[in-house]
């Protein structure tokens, strides 16, 4: 857990001079960004701002073109190396749940099986209970509705008790009921377990509801970072002001 690995409110991530380029196109360029253990950080910005790219880098899924990320004291750089133990303390719930062709229970158990933890029935049952899907544990995962599938994806991540949970537009295209459920689960996870949450969203209302701090990205660059209230009430950069007020044309 976060509290054991990195004390709350200390830097769990330090991003420095990070550049990501795809086929000579620079999609991300961040000079400095610190993420605190136990906080909820929202990354907001229009489509193509580099939010999901940053999330993949924070989950060590791809190596940066330049720069480094210090995570719990270990450096992740262009070599793409990060210890399995550290890698397994971070996980992501993507916009598409990407459930496997198995039952709901087996999907939730999947990450634990990867770690060789086969005797975790109680944890899996508790996670399914938490997302309100204990009654359909034996159902094939691919028969679920979009909201149910995303809740399974969340349970699959939660059961791993990660230090950091990355959420990539987890409620996009979901109905208000499921949005509310997922937000409540995320909030509980942060408050009860101290899990650091990094949430990618282009829904400023969601960022306002969930986040402690907000980062605004535009065209791959970090424009502004600040505490949630300050970010929405007194944005320093005119581009942030335009985005927050829905006036930005992109």
């Amino acid at each position: 857990m976060t509290t054991a690995a990195t004390p709350l409110n200390q830097n769990i991530y330090q991003v420095r001079n990070l550049v990501q380029t795809y086929e000579n196109r620079r999609v991300l360029e961040i000079e400095a960004l610190d993420i605190l253990a136990g906080e909820v950080l929202a990354l907001v910005g229009p489509s193509g701002a580099g939010k999901s790219t940053l999330l993949r880098l924070l989950n060590f899924l791809e190596a940066p073109t330049q720069g480094r990320i210090i995570y719990q004291g270990s450096e992740f750089n262009t070599s793409g190396d990060m210890s399995l133990e550290k890698r397994r303390s971070v996980t992501t719930v993507f916009q598409r749940p990407m459930l496997l062709e198995r039952t709901v229970y087996e999907n939730v158990a999947f990450g634990l099986r990867l770690r060789g933890q086969r005797d975790s029935k109680d944890r899996i049952a508790a996670a399914l209970e938490e997302v309100g899907l204990a009654n359909i544990a034996r159902q094939r995962a691919r028969t679920l509705s979009g909201g149910e599938a995303q809740r399974v994806a969340l349970a699959r991540a939660m059961v791993l008790e990660p230090d950091v949970l990355l959420l990539d537009e987890p409620t996009a295209n979901l109905d208000p009921y499921n949005v509310g459920l997922i937000e409540a689960i995320a909030r509980r996870l942060n408050q009860n377990h101290g899990t650091t949450l990094v949430l990618v969203t282009h829904n400023v209302f969601q960022a306002h509801r969930l986040a402690d701090r907000v980062c605004f990205l535009l065209e791959g660059k970090l424009i502004e970072t600040g505490p949630v209230q300050e970010f929405f009430d007194q944005p320093r950069d005119p581009r942030t002001h335009a985005f927050v007020n829905g006036e930005m044309v992109y």
Partner: peptide, 26 residues
């Protein structure tokens, strides 16, 4: 198999070998 499955499996902490076996299973 959707390439996003591999990304998800890796994000859940799979090694490259575990990811390959999962893709094979899918």
């Amino acid at each position: 198999v959707d390439p996003a499955v591999r990304q998800q499996v890796m994000a859940l902490g799979a090694t490259s070998r575990q990811a390959a076996l999962t893709i094979l299973s899918e």
